[in-house]
Every structure is written in structure tokens, then in C-alpha cells.
């Protein structure tokens, strides 16, 4: 190993260092990652009992889903209940996105230091948004179904809160990152806080906000699939119905139909959002 002869050491302190131990953050972080996985994955009181072996064994059993895939019942896609389910999903998603989008815009503005008139409002709105975001749509749905009965309304309300959570979060992040120049010049010209927001902040965030609202429509379409399981309307009621009865030949057909619909909406939405940004 003399291919690279060392130069005479002219600078002091050039001794080879010993290999240092890994940095504490990396060490504890990796241990935490593995530890958490073991604790939460193990089969004991506080773990869910994850076992690849069990899953492998289960794969060998009779599989009604594969059976359903083999005998797909496409005609079910044309049945009135399924069509009505799709229609209702669309209606719920559209109403919730529009109403949620309207409410989310001020919440997003107030969720940022630039957009909020004072620290109190900023902190209050930030916490309010976090609170809304911490409750899953299914829980909103089950609450409103219990409070006002089954149907599309509890579903719309659940998606409404979901929309607020998503749009406010994403939009407030762009409010935080806007160019501060216009804000400063609006203030310098003596504008009030509201005038400043209207002239300096809004024009900068509108394209992003609109794009997030469209994206939320897709999220709502997908989200509506679960709401029917607690009686909150939409295509989820069809899923639940077929699932409960074990009609996998129809269920898988509707799932594929749903996937195609979401896929098409996704493509359209991406095209429109590209135009916006």
C-alpha cells in the first residue's frame, strides 16, 4: 500500500483521528425507530401483534376476494343504487369542497404571522385549525349521524371539516412563504391590515389556494368512500352493503369503477392545476 506516499507532514496536528462513535441523535433516533416498531408491533398488551408468518399462513386460506375478482359482476355498476351512490359522492364532495374552501381561506390567512392582525388571533386560529385537523372525518360523520340522523348531510359536514383542515393547512404554509416586499410597500403606503391582506397577500396566494381546493375535491371523493360505513351517505354505503353481505364479485367491480372515476377526476384536476400555477 505504498501507491500514495504521504507528503512530509509540514502542518501540525495532522494525526489520524480515531473513528468517533455515532452522533447521539442518530444513535438514539435509530434505536427509537426500531424500539417503537418492536413495542407497537409485538404481540402483547400494548402491541398489535404483527407477524409476517400469520399473514403468510392466511394467504393460503380460502380467499373470497380473489373468488370475487374471478367472477366480476360488471352489471352491478349500472344498477340504480350504485349510480345513485356515485352521484351522491360527487354532490357531497362538491358542496363540502366549496363551503370548506370559503371558510378555510380566512382561517389560512389568520394562521400566519403575516396574515393575522395580532398574535392573539394568530395563536387562537392556529390552535383551532390543529384541533379541526386532529379529528378524523369518520368521527365527524359518526357524531353527526348520531345527532341528526343518517343521510348525505352528516357526510357533507364530515367532508366540510376535512376540507377546512386540508386547505387551511396547505394554504397557510404558502402564506408563510410569500414575498414580503409587497406587504412592506402596502404598509408603507398607509394601508390598513385588511387592505394590506387584500392587495399584497391575496394575489400571491390565490393560485396556490385554488389549486389546493381542487386537490381537496379529489381528497373528498376518496374520503367519501368510508363515510357510508357509519350511515353518512355516498358510494361508501354501497361498499358497506356489499362488504357486509360478502358480495365480493360486485364489491370489486364497484371498487374498480370508483378507481376509474377517481383516476379521471385526478387527471382533469392535475391539468387544471397546472394551468393555475
Amino acid at each position: 500500500m505504498s501507491a500514495v506516499p504521504a507528503a512530509p507532514s509540514s502542518r501540525p496536528g495532522s494525526a489520524r483521528p480515531d473513528k468517533p462513535p455515532p452522533p447521539p441523535f442518530v444513535l438514539w433516533g435509530s434505536l427509537g425507530l426500531v424500539g417503537l416498531t418492536l413495542v407497537l408491533g409485538w404481540d402483547w398488551e400494548y402491541g398489535i401483534g404483527f407477524s409476517l408468518r400469520d399473514i403468510y399462513d392466511n394467504l393460503g386460506r380460502y380467499n373470497p376476494v380473489l373468488e370475487g375478482v374471478r367472477n366480476l359482476d360488471w352489471s352491478t355498476l349500472a344498477s340504480p343504487t350504485v349510480l345513485a351512490g356515485f352521484a351522491e359522492t360527487f354532490q357531497m364532495a362538491a358542496i363540502a369542497t366549496i363551503l370548506g374552501g370559503i371558510v378555510a381561506l380566512p382561517l389560512a390567512l389568520l394562521n400566519s404571522v403575516t396574515g393575522a392582525p395580532n398574535t392573539f388571533v394568530y395563536v387562537a386560529v392556529k390552535n383551532f385549525n390543529s384541533f379541526i385537523r386532529a379529528i378524523p372525518d369518520l368521527i365527524y360523520a359518526v357524531f353527526f349521524v348520531a345527532a341528526i340522523g343518517r343521510g348525505a348531510l352528516p357526510g357533507v359536514l364530515a367532508l366540510f371539516f376535512l376540507s377546512i383542515a386540508v386547505i387551511a393547512k396547505l394554504t397557510s404554509d404558502i402564506v408563510d412563504g410569500i414575498d414580503q416586499g409587497p406587504v412592506e410597500s402596502a404598509r408603507a403606503s398607509g394601508a390598513s391590515h385588511t387592505q394590506m391582506v387584500k392587495t399584497a397577500v391575496l394575489p400571491q396566494i390565490l393560485p396556490g389556494y385554488t389549486s389546493f381546493a381542487l386537490y381537496t375535491f379529489e381528497i373528498n371523493l376518496r374520503g367519501s368512500a368510508v363515510l357510508g360505513f357509519v350511515g353518512a351517505g355516498g358510494i361508501g354505503e354501497v361498499f358497506n352493503n356489499y362488504y357486509q353481505r360478502g358480495w365480493y364479485d360486485r364489491l370489486v367491480a364497484v371498487v374498480i369503477g370508483f378507481f376509474v372515476v377517481v383516476f379521471i377526476v385526478d387527471r382533469i384536476s392535475i391539468a387544471v392545476r397546472k394551468r393555475l400555477l
Binding site: 376518496r222 374520503g223 368512500a225 361498499f239 362488504y243 364489491l251 378507481f259
Partner: peptide, 12 residues
């Protein structure tokens, strides 16, 4: 683009 619930009821 497939929601969780769909994977869930297909796995159950």
C-alpha cells in the same frame, strides 16, 4: 388514489 377503506375491506 385508492382509499384506505377499500384496501381494508379487500384485506379483511
Amino acid at each position: 388514489s385508492v382509499p384506505e377503506i377499500v384496501f381494508l375491506i379487500l384485506l379483511l
